[in-house]
Design a protein around this nucleic acid. Structure first.
Lengths: 338, 338
DNA sequence: TGTTTTCAGTCAAACGATTGCATAAGGTAA
DNA sequence: TTACCTTATGCAATCGTTTGACTGAAAACA
């Protein structure tokens, strides 16, 4: 049943020529006679010859496989991103090995280990939310495995990365709310340690300043991204004497929990209070109380771009570290807000 | 910079012994002297030796990689399933290559091709919604690549598969509604060709019969799973003179669209009409008008099980085709409904 | 005709690890 | 002392493909 697959050697033997000639015939090498080439090609087709990729991987020290490490595939942002990566990779005959870190540092390290063993040609990663030490990525240099970061990227110099300009995104969000006459704007930020949180905060400050509104630190609360953390954050915001009329939240998942909390307190969302958040989840469309607007970060495009950069590094087209910036857009019902 | 990694040969040369001895020393082969073994092990550690997996893959004709083909990672069901697969695989030192078919037959074929080229040890697949011909899976037998199906499985005999008993699931859903005094129960089924639709329909009939309710074919409509298709289906159901007081929908995404439509027509969901659907999406929790109940299909467990079966086949522990049935459960606010 | 070019192909090594078989050294028993 | 066994190790083939160096023959040129 498990019949043996034809090899180059087999073809060579049958045609009484050397394996090297077969190999060259199949690769259109110039120094191979046309008649031999035809014989080889037709016999190869007849036998259903297919090159043994594992042999080639081994021989070429290249696997045409790239590893992708993500926190969670179940977040729409990441499943979109991986589609971008996969599509771009497939176009260039690369395949994708996935690993989910579930935002766990140890797991992330283990995945890197496995991918390194598998000799992937490169890795694309969105760093786990509680990874604050990056030596496991540094270690990959020794193995000549390039890494491209996206979304959640370390604050280390000289790395290749794709990121969305969250300062700009936040400024857009705040400007939008201010245009809608909101003056007291709350901000539920993520964990303070996160670069992503720091960017958002910076954007918040810039936007308030530019609009000559007072920056009130009490309007800034943090969530650890769990529902409980978000509820606590909401509680604090709503208890504050300068109660915000609008809230910018770290992402749509936080918004979901925040809206839930507000509703449970009898607050009517989109009347008593308005939300703007990051991500532009497809489910927003179905929500009864969707955020007023959401900052689209174009995960698919980020994935594509990351893969493009990685490929350039692998093919040694790029030497300098590249940092690609994606411009986020404020979306309202999937329409661009200008 | 790209320093060469140490190999068995290198270790052998340094210790003036043969590569075979090194290999055996590192594998605790019985016939190796204790002193040599120690020398080898310590030098290996010192040099940071790591076996070249690509060489081993090639030599052993085994890649410790399995392919997973799914319609879309962005559906929560599949991202959950892949977590189950990945976790189980990781435990057994396997890695996972992913491909998304986007429910496209051609793409599915292409992915299989690539995975075959990569010499994966096995494949787990949820078949694309418009694949009705399975020769590309059959072809894998020739390459000795076992396939385990889950979720969307072909109606072919003698296949290995994990599936959720949707007849049972549908019966549970209908019984639940009948207990709630609903007598006219509409049913938005998926494309009639789909085995998944056929099972659901059968469950519907069985449940109606058991409860001595008349089976009314006009209460059964189909959607092609697009929002427009679902709207049309809803339109027909609501226009029917025996207007249903409850609707069972093919899955939560269909429900999302159906609810949207109902709301747009001024119908109050969970007062004028009730929904029960399949999938138990996490977002249901956040919906203002969630389905009354949802049939949980345990995607994580399905993934795990599929991987377990596949591993058994790869390790030749199983010879007979296995069909594992997962029992679905009706969930209400993430609580089991009994 | 003799010399150089070109063509069409072969040889053998290499990639890194594994493994069946052979063998040397040393020990033991008859 | 001889025969035999054990233990530790080496040899060489193998997995399938690629590739630099080489060769023999024919074609082209002077």
């Amino acid at each position: 049943m498990p019949e043996k697959l034809p090899t180059i050697k087999e073809i060579a033997k049958r045609l009484n020529i050397s394996p090297s000639s077969v190999s060259r015939a199949l690769h259109n090498h110039p120094s191979i006679g046309i008649s031999t080439k035809e014989k080889v090609v037709s016999l190869a087709k007849e036998l259903g010859y297919e090159p043994n990729q594992t042999a080639i991987f081994f021989q070429k020290r290249k696997t045409f496989t790239i590893g992708v490490i993500l926190p969670k595939l179940s977040e729409a942002f990441f499943s979109e991103a991986i589609s971008g990566i996969e599509d771009f990779a497939a176009k260039h005959k690369y395949t994708v090995l996935v690993g989910q870190s579930h935002n766990n540092f140890e797991k992330e390290k283990k995945i890197i280990e496995t991918m390194k063993d598998h000799r992937v040609d490169g890795i694309i990663v969105s760093v786990a939310k509680n990874t604050f030490q990056y030596s496991h990525f540094e270690a990959l240099k020794k193995y000549n495995i390039p890494v491209v970061f996206f979304d959640c990227i370390p604050d280390t110099p000289n790395i290749d990365a794709v990121e969305c300009d969250m300062i700009d995104g936040t400024v857009k969000a705040i400007n939008f709310l201010i245009k809608k006459k909101h003056k007291v704007i709350g901000f539920i930020n993520g964990p303070a340690k996160l670069p992503a949180s720091q960017q958002r905060l910076q954007g918040y400050k810039i936007a308030m300043q530019k609009n000559r509104l007072k920056f009130d630190p009490q309007l800034i609360v943090n969530t650890d991204l769990t529902p409980a953390g978000t509820e606590q954050a909401m509680f604090e915001l709503l208890a504050y004497k300068r109660k915000p009329s609008a809230i910018v939240a770290f992402n749509d998942y936080v918004t979901l929990d925040a809206v839930q909390y507000a509703r449970s307190k009898g607050i009517i969302v989109n009347r008593d209070i308005f939300f703007v958040s990051y991500a532009n989840l497809p489910v927003n469309h179905y929500m009864a109380y969707p955020p007023l607007a959401s900052i689209e970060q174009f995960p698919y495009e980020q994935g594509e771009k990351a893969m493009e950069i990685l490929l350039n590094i692998i093919q040694e087209k790029t030497m300098q570290p590249v940092k690609a910036i994606i411009e986020p857009q404020l979306m309202l019902n999937n329409q661009l807000v200008l």
